[in-house]
Write a protein that binds this DNA or RNA. Structure first.
Length: 206
DNA sequence: TAAACGATGCCCT
DNA sequence: GGGCATCGTTTAC
């Protein structure tokens, strides 16, 4: 890409950057798979240098993709039940990824409701395991490239810019102090509520 | 071969 | 707001 141009998530070079740049940049982008789409409202950064990251312990068969080139999806099973969706970032071999934690449903709502067995929009994709279920994303999509089957599209032109706030990551027991969670403060679809001070100005309506 | 541990979600109070 | 189900992956013996 040319110098000075804003990075776009349809470009492979978008992911060949520091994870702390890519993770907030993904907030507001659109994730689409088989006609079902949602706006990314929450991400988390993981890096091999800190113990909460799967790459921290080194290369295992399960984390092979995580140690590979950027711009590839790393999908793994959590708690024996849920599929969690990550995008590998940083140069080949570093072992860093962005976890997509929550979406705001945009299209294909009926398919999402059917897969989730729920009606409420704010419950469809408000969690890393929920969104993969809602979109029908399974472990078979591990190691596929961005744009190959799952697409990540730039923030729609003219759309309101997301107000990205940082917070501590969710559901981990190590390196809990790192503020590597990135949320759109204006969205009701985040996986866990933000502190009131961060929601100021948001269109509330609980 | 066996045991422990989760980047969670759901149902209960 | 808190506790528990669930089972693949990892690590230990």
């Amino acid at each position: 890409m040319s110098a000075g141009a804003p990075p776009v998530p349809t470009d492979a070079s978008f992911y060949d950057r520091p994870v702390l740049e890519v993770a907030p940049d993904l907030v507001g982008c659109v994730l689409r798979y088989r006609g079902v789409a949602g706006r990314i409202v929450e991400t988390e950064a993981y890096h091999a240098s800190e113990p909460a990251c799967h790459a921290y312990v080194g290369l295992t068969p399960r984390t092979e993709v995580l140690h590979g080139p950027p711009g590839v999806f790393y999908v793994y099973r959590s708690y024996g039940v849920h599929a969690l969706l990550n995008t590998v970032v940083e140069p080949d071999g570093v072992g860093a990824a962005v976890l997509v934690r929550a979406l705001e449903p945009l299209s294909g709502l009926q398919a999402m409701r059917t897969r989730r067995g729920l009606d409420r929009v704010q419950d469809l994709c408000s969690g890393p395991g929920k969104l993969t279920q809602a979109l029908g994303i399974g472990l078979d999509l591990n190691a596929t490239s961005v744009g190959e089957r799952i697409e990540i599209l730039p923030r729609p032109t003219g759309a309101e810019e997301p107000r990205v706030v940082t917070a501590e990551r969710i559901g981990i027991t190590r390196a809990v102090e790192l503020p590597w969670r990135f949320c759109d403060a204006g969205s009701r679809c985040v996986s866990r509520p933000l502190p009131p001070a961060m929601r100021r100005g948001a269109r509330a309506a609980a």
